[in-house]
Computed example of a mutant assay.
Amino acid sequence: MKINPTVALTFLLLVLMTGAGVFTGALGFAIGREALKGITQPDSRPTNKGTAQNSSVREDIVLLKEEDILKTVKGRTSAGRSSSPSPNASPQSNSEEAKPASNAAAKLPMTTQTNGVAMDVTGIRKQGEFLLLDVALKNNSNQPVKFLYSFLNVTDDKGRLIVADTAGLPPELPSKSDRFTGTISISTSMLDDAQKISLQLSDYPDQKLQLKMADIPIKSP
C-alpha cells in the first residue's frame, strides 16, 4: 500500500513536537528541582523553638498589658483635649488654671541623691486636667550621666503604674553640672483617689544609677 507523503510528514511532525514537549517539560522540572534543593517551608508552629536565631527574636517580643495600653490611651486623649483651650476662655480663667495642689506643697521641696546626682521636687500644682511636678536635676559627680525619660517609673500609693511626660529636662547631665529644671506632667484622670506617688529614674543605658523618691504628697490628707 502506498503511503501518502503529506500524511507521513504530518505524522512525523506530530511525533517530533510531542517528543520535544516531553523533553522540555522533563528538563524544566529537573532544573527547578535542583534550584529549590535545600529550601524548606518555615515552621510556624508556636510550640517549636526553632533555631537559636528564631528563639532570640521571639524573646525580644514584649507583650503589653491591656490595662497599661488603656491607661496610656486615656492619658493621651486627655492631653489632646487640654492642649486646645476654648476660644471663649477669658484671661482670668487662664490665669487660674495653674493652682497649687492642696496642701501638698507643705512637705516640699523633697530631695534624693545617688552617686553625686541629685533630683529635687520643688513644687506641685494643677493646670487644667494635669498635675505638674516641678523637678530639678544636678550632677555633682565627675562623670556625665545620660537619662532616657521614657524609663521614668511613676507609681501611686496603691502600686498602680502611671503614665507621665517630662519637659525641659536635658538628656545628659555633664559632670559638675549646673542645676537643670523641668516638669513632670500627669493626667489627673489617672490618679483617681491616689494620695501619694513615687518616682524612680535610672541612667541610660547602664541603669546602674537609681534616683528614687517615695511618698510624694499630691493631695491633702
Rank of each mutant, 00 (worst) to 15 (best):
109 P>T: 12
62 V>G: 00
128 G>L: 11
70 L>T: 09
160 R>E: 15
180 F>I: 12
170 P>T: 13
79 A>M: 06
162 I>K: 02
97 E>N: 09
189 S>H: 13
138 K>S: 14
177 S>W: 13
212 K>F: 01
125 R>S: 15
3 I>R: 07
2 K>Q: 11
98 A>P: 07
53 Q>G: 02
54 N>F: 04
82 S>P: 00
218 I>G: 00
117 V>D: 11
152 L>N: 10
102 S>D: 15
174 P>A: 14
64 L>H: 03
132 L>A: 10
57 V>W: 04
25 G>W: 05
185 S>R: 12
80 G>P: 00
220 S>N: 12
131 L>H: 06
158 K>A: 14
164 A>R: 08
115 N>G: 14
140 N>W: 12
4 N>R: 05
100 P>C: 07
16 L>K: 02
184 I>R: 02
111 T>K: 15
41 Q>W: 04
206 D>T: 08
188 T>A: 08
161 L>G: 14
25 G>N: 05
203 D>H: 01
63 L>A: 04
93 S>E: 14
116 G>T: 14
103 N>M: 15
80 G>W: 10
212 K>G: 01
15 V>F: 07
214 A>M: 05
17 M>H: 03
172 E>Y: 10
152 L>T: 12
64 L>V: 06
165 D>F: 12
132 L>Y: 11
131 L>F: 07
81 R>A: 08
220 S>C: 04
123 G>E: 13
38 G>H: 02
7 V>E: 11
219 K>M: 03
119 M>T: 15
156 D>G: 02
61 I>N: 02
20 A>S: 03
74 K>M: 08
156 D>F: 01
95 S>A: 13
176 K>R: 15
62 V>Y: 03
111 T>R: 15
161 L>C: 11
173 L>W: 11
108 L>I: 12
126 K>C: 13
81 R>N: 07
93 S>Q: 14
213 M>H: 01
4 N>V: 04
68 D>K: 02
54 N>R: 08
75 G>I: 05
84 S>G: 04
97 E>R: 14
79 A>H: 03
75 G>N: 06
219 K>Q: 06
9 L>A: 09
192 D>H: 06
215 D>S: 00
167 A>I: 15
50 G>P: 01
206 D>I: 04
33 R>V: 02
159 G>M: 08
206 D>P: 00
192 D>T: 08
73 V>Q: 08
21 G>Y: 03
193 D>M: 00
171 P>C: 11
99 K>N: 12
149 Y>A: 10
56 S>Q: 11
66 E>K: 04
55 S>M: 10
147 F>T: 09
176 K>C: 11
59 E>C: 00
103 N>L: 15
81 R>C: 02
205 P>N: 02
107 K>P: 08
46 P>V: 03
202 S>K: 07
131 L>S: 05
54 N>Q: 13
98 A>Y: 10
51 T>C: 01
165 D>T: 15
89 A>R: 10
126 K>Y: 13
75 G>K: 01
104 A>M: 09
67 E>K: 05
188 T>R: 11
60 D>K: 07
42 P>E: 03
27 L>R: 07
